[in-house]
Design a binder for these strands. Sequence first.
DNA 1: CTTTACGCCTGACGGC
DNA 2: TGCCGTCAGGCGTAAA
Length: 276
Amino acid sequence: MPELPEVETTLRGLEPHLLGHSINDVVVRNAALRWPIPPEVFQASGRTVARCRRRAKYLLIDLDAQTGEKRCGLIIHLGMSGSLRICSAGDTPRKHDHFDLVLDNGHCVRFNDPRRFGALLWRSGPALNHQLLRELGPEPLSNDFSGELLRQRARGRKGAVKNFIMDGRIVVGVGNIYASEALFMAGIHPSRPAGRISAARYDALAAAIRDVLSRAIRSGGTTLRDYLNSAGKPGYFAQELLVYEREGKPCFQCGAAIRRKVIGQRSSYYCPSCQR
DNA sequence: CTTTACGCCTGACGGC
DNA sequence: TGCCGTCAGGCGTAAA
């Protein structure tokens, strides 16, 4: 699925179509997403989009509220296989097109998600106070994120560092692909206990996380299976992946065969000689 | 507190 | 051709 770069790419594509426009209607064809789409989302009808932003892998569409009314908006998550694209309001829905935000300009934002792990939620009150967002760690591309922070939070932890950096309470947005990539770039073995990594190596890891995520955003994200951006086009970062899904192929640094290992029920890829 | 396993879904693929 | 098992980019929840 969409990890942080894919969500960010989607946001950037949608924003010009949404900002300042009114949502005329919300069309729900299948409410059975990860959580049932709540009827409150229909309150979006007739409201203007005041702001589009991303927190972790959540897309936040903030709507204008009437005077004296609480702030409100929509929260969208793409799950494992979700995508949002701009369509003409009259386009025939395809399989797995579960909902539309119909805009005032003849376009709509259409959500497609074969596996239905995604979500559309309504929020009233500040978005960042929402239960799903409240406990999240820092954004990896912000100044709140650093190797020092990782080192502190890892103190005493015995679990694998790969699971540690994929824990959204530590740092958000690092999914299965970019976790493997960043650990390779930093030369750290994915199974190494998080509490047994030096401050210097955590600095390298934080830098690698920033670097891989920002490069992936520049390439429009990684398309391995489902991901498409808001214009229905794939991202191109897959061709820059160093270890992910390269089991048995030679390491680009040393030539050793890349290995795959299941850590925390997820496939992890690493170079047994470059990563310690 | 940390850590682990599971399940929500569909679809693609490989083996028989 | 079909059937079955496995796997897939997330993440909340329960339980250890």
